[in-house]
Design a protein around this nucleic acid. Structure first.
Lengths: 163, 163
DNA sequence: GTTGATATCTTACATTCTAAGATATAAGGT
DNA sequence: ACCTTATATCTTAGAATGTAAGATATCAAC
């Protein structure tokens, strides 16, 4: 395969792999009866410990109104809990409940095992190489997103031509 | 870094990279004034040539009713066109319009350049290695999704796995 | 204590999805 | 040819979830 063809194939493979990841998340969300947005928020809640509603809105790009709904549903499903902030009582701190690990863990196992079965075949050196590549790609993507947002935004056009 | 830590870091890096890809798509969609679902469908339309509405529903996991709306919006925005199937007049074939390449191309350039700036530093051998890894990961993910759906309790609706 | 900033929630409305059924066409048996 | 059943898309009604704007409560500074 030529170098050019290799790069084209690699770009497609990356998009496909990314898509599979999304698809897996959607499937997991469906299985536990919440939507993808709520699962993404739950991921942030788990990763970034007790987090305020406002921060959650900021990292997900949702409005605070939408976040209120997200937290309501996560609470109702038993995956998260609201607490008042100790010193600033306007704030609401959201944290994950034990049910998350118990119910979400098993659902991520097939993916973890799958990734493991692939990765376990590589040497430490190869894994380090892969980690480096992924990090660089993420960084490049972040830069590209910024670039896209920074770029002149042409004439404002309505979302769709009127009904 | 220990091997275990390496693998944990890699898993997180993969999720992050996947997320960046999604975020990029959302940004592109916003920039051209359509939603992410419509852009995903448009990608299929571009890749898989003239495709019937039903097939589009099958590969995306949307209902045919939703696909009708998607095609309506893509048509109104000038990105796609409906045609009657030659021999089976129940079918509607959807194909991309030239405007897609013209208007979408530039928006994907920052990402392409970013990926290129990373990938260009590697040897052919390294690129081949990466392509192999991505392919294996995609395949493992597909298997994991199937596994997850197989374990499902109720009737399962899945994307991409349907024929 | 008053004023303005901040954090979250509420409300009204828009968009897009699903489910069910309508419509049109196809295909096969009689 | 006719009738029945299957298929492909569209239509409709209702649900879910998003935004925007404003209400409410709290904080922070003067």
């Amino acid at each position: 395969m030529s170098r050019d063809a290799l790069i084209v194939a690699l770009n497609r493979a990356m998009r496909d792999a990314s898509g599979q990841g999304v698809l897996y998340s959607q499937t997991v969300a469906e299985r536990i009866g919440i939507n993808s947005t709520d699962l993404e928020c739950l991921d942030f809640i788990v990763l970034r410990g007790p987090i305020s509603a406002g921060e959650l809105a900021a990292v997900t790009g949702l409005t605070t109104g939408a976040i209120t709904g997200v937290i309501d549903r996560l609470e109702r499903a038993g995956f998260a809990r609201r607490d008042r902030h100790g010193s600033d009582r306007r704030k609401v701190l959201v944290q994950a409940m034990p049910a998350v690990k118990r119910r979400l863990g098993p659902l991520f196992q097939p993916m973890e095992r799958g990734a493991m079965s692939v990765l376990s075949k590589y040497s430490d050196k190869e894994l380090a190489f892969l980690l480096d590549v992924f990090s660089r790609l993420s960084e490049a993507a972040a830069t590209a997103i910024t670039e896209l947002n920074t770029r002149a935004k042409g004439p404002t056009k309505s979302r769709y031509t009127r009904k």
